[in-house]
Nucleic acid binder design. Structure first.
Length: 362
DNA sequence: TTAGGGTTAG
């Protein structure tokens, strides 16, 4: 891919690159008191490389998954930035990912900014994380600005970069632009799309109400080299069901099996929901039997769907039976189960029973 | 497992 071509392609004018700086002063308030014992550091031994003594970065063995406070990650991150030589970029990426998992996207972007200012070399994974943060903040245009930075740094964007940007466009309801970028990706071979690309596009189209366009795409994929996976089929089946095209969803379910893709619990849950919403309880029963033959057990989602459907039909006794089966299978009801039951009793005017369930939750 | 992914109520 040529830099000038893509530069022209993704030019979004004079966009400010770091809008997250504005109004965010959280980091400055965070205490930087943090001890080194958080790290498990190996001995810092010198090695010889091309006749010169070289001190490799101290390996940091740190489990960011065990940290649940963003302030702690920030402290570790800043400590890493102070180290010389700098730790490997993988550790910075891991810390940024942990901040993203805490949904602190603006903070992740501020840390990304600090990395750049302190001279941590640019890295494709890091920039993809930053693009994703902008997308999740509904600022995909700033994500495209980062894309321009890829080229400035001489780094090639990869399929994740484009997947993230396409998802970002869909998140902002910019369906036409998302489709355009996807098509450009294919036409100009900017990168090889993968199964996540197809899922993002199918999901984006479905959520935007373009289920039939997504259907056509899946049919096209079936004929090509990249077969749709179970998630793609499930997304489409779910959307067809929500659009009341239950027969088409059933067709797709049988088609995916014919094509060699096995449905999973989420596929069945989506289909069961669709049948329930259409009052086709007989077929729900058939599907539950089919699940048994495929060795797939109903889960909390399945039972919640059934409980809700029975309650809406005024069949609260059947819903209570579901709770009994759940109990036998050691599946604990959750707030969704109880809400559906309370709703069911309220619909029948049985307020005492509804109140009784409400008090069992408290 | 260093980045991007599909389901239940209201």
């Amino acid at each position: 891919m040529k830099k000038n071509v893509v530069g022209a392609l993704f030019s979004f004018g004079e966009t400010k690159l770091f809008p997250h700086k504005m109004g965010v002063r959280v980091l400055q308030a965070v205490s930087i008191h943090h001890s080194f014992d958080l790290f498990s550091v190996n001995l810092h031994t010198s090695v010889s490389h091309k006749g010169r003594s070289y001190f490799p970065p101290k390996p940091i063995i740190f489990d960011f998954n065990s940290i649940n406070k963003v302030e702690d990650v920030i402290c570790i991150f800043r400590d890493m930035l102070r180290r010389r030589p700098l730790p490997y970029v993988i550790h910075f990426n891991k810390s940024l990912t942990s901040v993203v998992k805490m949904k602190q996207y603006s903070i992740a972007l501020l840390l990304f900014d600090e990395m750049r200012q302190l001279g941590v070399p640019a890295h494709d994974y890091t920039m993809n994380i930053a693009i994703n943060c902008y997308c999740l903040l509904n600022r995909v245009d700033f994500g495209f600005s980062i894309l321009c930075n890829f080229f400035k740094c001489g780094i090639q964007p990869n399929v994740t970069t484009f997947n993230t940007l396409i998802k970002g466009l869909f998140l902002e309801d910019r369906v036409f632009e998302a489709e355009k970028l996807f098509k450009k990706l294919l036409r100009e071979r900017l990168c090889e799309p993968n199964e996540i690309t197809f899922l993002i596009v199918v999901n984006g189209l479905c959520k935007a109400g373009h289920t039939l366009t997504a259907f056509d795409l899946v049919m096209l994929l079936e004929k090509g080299r990249s077969k749709p996976n179970v998630r793609v089929y499930t997304t489409l089946i779910d959307s067809l069901c929500k659009d009341r095209m239950v027969n088409d969803a059933l067709y797709l379910l049988s088609n995916m099996i014919k094509e060699g893709t096995s449905p999973d619990i989420i596929t069945y849950n989506s289909m069961i929901k669709g049948l329930c919403d259409s009052g086709r309880f007989g077929e729900v029963k058939d599907l539950l039997k089919e699940m048994v033959t495929h060795k797939i057990s109903p889960d909390l989602f399945t039972f919640n769907t059934l409980v809700d459907a029975f309650c809406k039909e005024g069949r609260v006794e059947d819903a209570e039976d579901m709770l009994e089966i759940m109990n036998q299978r050691s599946i604990s009801p959750n707030v969704v189960t109880y809400n559906a039951l309370i709703d069911g009793y309220c619909l029948r005017g049985e307020m005492d029973k509804a109140r009784k369930i409400f008090h069992t939750i408290l």
